[in-house]
């Protein structure tokens, strides 16, 4: 199961729970659901899909091919424990035995389900840790092997360590100071790009359109579907959605580890990536509602806490319309 699939699955579980909880039609549940739904477009996605599946289940097995008792009996057989128990109760009277069997069939079925589920979720149970920062929050975490990760605002990393690899799945931006370990490659996955390192320090910024990798120390290899490039200290590349790798002058002013700055620097970056960077820092969200505009390139340096500076800058463009609704700044 890929990371995306795992995420989809856990969102879908939440969505299914919401679908059920909303049936009660309570104001507090509705408010909580509203908060959940605005938290991520992936929540919207899961909720709509689970609703569709729920509807498809309405006529499930209309000809009663599935026999629940057989299902449960089958489940019972795979648990040796319950069989042992049943042999023991065989000496008891008929009524007692019946009662006993009924009770155990439930226990056994539940246990069987746990066993089956264990296999099911096995993939997701492998030493899987996740860290998230809120809007404007920065945090430093230390992983089991001594590697440190500085999470930028509104960032989510999922850490998967196994015997031969250390994998990090990134949403947002982070600086990594990697503990050398020749036996286990250290890889950061960002969109369709993989950034591979031995002992080194580098940052990865995953944006809507592109990923920017900056190396501060050591050597890093950046891999995409069709090419790869090696970066030394002081070098930076931008990899766009089409897997095009572009070398450029380092814009990331992130100083050595733990002191990430709140200054955002852009060099010929798409407006959608710029807006996303600001959105990581502010409750007020900039939405670009125009594909041509999203792709327009800008350069400049901004204070991350001051999205107004970007808005003012855009307003001067003349052909851009700014529409404000509460915390949403709509640019079109």
């Amino acid at each position: 199961m890929t990371v995306n699939q795992q995420a989809n699955l856990s969102f879908a579980v939440e969505a299914a729970e919401w679908l059920d909880r909303l049936e009660a039609d309570r104001p507090d549940e509705r408010a909580a659901f509203a908060r959940w739904i605005v938290a991520s477009p992936l929540h919207v996605d899961s909720f709509l899909k689970v609703t569709a599946v729920d509807r498809l289940l309405t006529n499930i097995d209309r000809h009663h091919h599935i026999n629940v008792d057989q299902l449960l009996a089958g489940a019972k057989d795979v648990i040796p424990l319950s069989n042992a128990r049943q042999n023991k109760t065989a000496v008891a009277g008929t009524r007692g035995r019946l009662r006993e069997r009924r009770r155990w069939s439930g226990v056994a079925a539940a246990a069987a389900a746990v066993v089956a589920l264990a296999g099911w979720w096995a993939v997701s149970l492998v030493a899987d840790t996740q860290f998230t920062t809120a809007i404007g929050e920065q945090r430093t975490i230390e992983l089991a092997d001594g590697t440190t990760v500085g999470l930028d605002a509104r960032t989510h990393v999922k850490v998967q360590y196994s015997d031969d690899a250390r994998d990090i799945y990134l949403q947002g931006a982070a600086i990594f100071t990697v503990q050398p370990d020749p036996q286990r490659t250290f890889r950061v996955h960002s969109d369709h790009t993989v950034i591979q390192a031995l002992g080194t320090q580098f940052s990865v910024d995953r944006r809507p359109w592109s990923t920017v990798v900056t190396v501060f120390d050591g050597l890093v290899e950046v891999l995409t579907a069709n090419s790869s490039v090696r970066l030394a200290a002081g070098e930076e590349v931008r990899i766009d959605r089409n897997a095009r790798i572009e070398r450029r002058t380092a814009t990331s002013t992130s100083s050595p580890f733990g002191r990430m700055e709140t200054r955002l620097v852009f060099a010929d970056d798409r407006l959608e990536d710029i807006a996303a960077a600001f959105n990581r820092w502010n409750r007020s969200q900039i939405l670009i509602d125009n594909p041509t505009l999203s792709a327009r390139l800008y350069s400049g340096a901004f204070d991350a806490n001051d999205p107004e500076s970007l808005i003012t800058f855009l307003e001067r463009e003349g052909d851009i319309e700014i529409d404000r609704q509460d915390d949403i700044v709509l640019v079109r």
């Binding site: 699939q5 989809n8 699955l9 879908a12 969505a15 299914a16 059920d20 899909k49 599946v53 289940l57």
Partner: peptide, 10 residues
């Protein structure tokens, strides 16, 4: 129930 629906959806 939630897990079953989620699994099918996914």
């Amino acid at each position: 129930l939630y897990e079953a629906k989620a699994r099918i959806t996914a």
